[in-house]
Write a protein that binds this DNA or RNA. Sequence first.
DNA 1: AATAATATCCTATAAAAGCATGATTTTTCA
DNA 2: TGAAAAATCATGCTTTTATAGGATATTATT
Lengths: 205, 205
Amino acid sequence: MSIKILIVDDHPLVLEGLKSLLTDCEGIEVVGTASNAIDAISFLKTNEVDIAFLDINLPDISGIDLCKKIKEQYPNVKTLALSTFNERAYVSRMIQNGASGYLIKSSGKEDILEAIRQVQAGGYFMNVNFDQATSSAPPKTVPFLTRREKEVLILIAEGLTNPQIAEQLFVSVTTVNTHRQNLLMKFEVSNTASLIKLAAGLGLI
Amino acid sequence: MSIKILIVDDHPLVLEGLKSLLTDCEGIEVVGTASNAIDAISFLKTNEVDIAFLDINLPDISGIDLCKKIKEQYPNVKTLALSTFNERAYVSRMIQNGASGYLIKSSGKEDILEAIRQVQAGGYFMNVNFDQATSSAPPKTVPFLTRREKEVLILIAEGLTNPQIAEQLFVSVTTVNTHRQNLLMKFEVSNTASLIKLAAGLGLI
DNA sequence: AATAATATCCTATAAAAGCATGATTTTTCA
DNA sequence: TGAAAAATCATGCTTTTATAGGATATTATT
C-alpha cells in the first residue's frame, strides 16, 4: 500500500513540482492537490490521506490555522509544513499545532523523500541545512510577534505615523506607541530605520 | 519546430514544476535545466535555446549578472526573469540587462504560456497582476542618488541618528539632515520607515 | 568661463518617535 | 477556573525627524 499524499499550496509551480517529483517514486501516491484551505478540508472529507503538505501562506486562512484544523478533525492525517526560506520563523507554530515537521521549498528530492519516510514512520522531520548563500541576510532569529504587533509593523512600514495607525486600528496613540516600543525591543533595535531594515530582510514586510 | 526552453533555478521544486507544466504543452520543449549560472552558461555553449528562464537568486552569481552574460555571449537567446513576489524590485535591472520580461513564481499555467508566446514573438511580458494585497506600493523606479546620499541612506538603515551620521562623515547635523530630506524627496516618501522599506525592496541596503 | 549639480551650512518650528513607569482589561489556554 | 499572555491606556520627558525658508562653497561639465 502506497503512502497517500495531499498537497496544499496556492503556487501552481510548487504544486506541479512536488507532484512531478513524487509521482516517479515507488510507494508514494499523490492523491490530491488543493490551492486553498477550503478545498483541502473538503478533500479530506471524502478521501483518505496519510500525509498533507501544507504551504504556510494560503489565500484564505494561514497554513498554521489549517494545520490546527486538520489535526482537530482528522488527527490521523500527518502534516508537513512547506515554507520558503524566509518563513522558517513560522514553522515553530506549525509544530505547536501538530505538524510533523517542515520542508523548505528549495529542498531537493532526497530531502523530500526522507521527510516522507520519517513522518510516515511516526517521526519528525526538520530540514535545517539551509545551504542557500544567505548572502547578507543576518542569521538573526525572527522574534515572536503577536497579531497586533505584526499589524502595527506593517502599518509602520507603509509609512503611517502613530496617530494614523491609531486611527486605522481604532485604538489610542499610546497603545500604538506601546506596540511600537515592544517591536523595537523584540528586534533589539533602537529606531524605526533598523526595525524596518531587519523586518524587510526577514521577509516580514 | 517547437520552442526550446532552458530553465535555470536552484530550487528543484521550481525546476520540476516548470518542467512538468511545460512538457504537456504543444510546441514547447524543455531542452535543459540548470541549478546554477556556470551550468547554464556551459549548457548554452553546446545547445540551441530560444528562451531561458532565469531565477533572480542563484547560488553562484545573481540572475541579473547571468542575464547580462547571456545577452553578451548569446544575444539570440531570450531571457525571462523568474522572481518571487518580494523580488520584483530587481526585475527592472534584469530588463536593463536585456531580459524580455519576468514571471512571478506564483504564476499560473496561463500566465507562463502567455509569457512564452509574447517573448517568442519578440515582445515583452511582465506579469503585473499581483493578486496579493499590494497595498499602496507602486512599481517605483529607482531614483538617482548621489554618492553622499547613498552613504547617508546606508547609515540611516544601520540605525544611526543624524548626530551620529554627522560625526561619522565629519559634517554638520544640518548637512546630514539636508541629505535626508533629499532622500525623502527623491523616493517620494514622507518618513524614514517608508524610505527604508523602499530602499530595502530595491536592494539598495 | 559660465552653468549646473553637488555638498555644505544656517535658523526655527512642529510633529513624531523614543524611553521610562505603571496600570487595567481581555483573551487564551492548560 | 486560574494563571499567563496580550492588548489596552496613561503621564511626562527627551531626542530625533520632518518641513520650510534660506545661503555659500565646491565640483564637474560643456
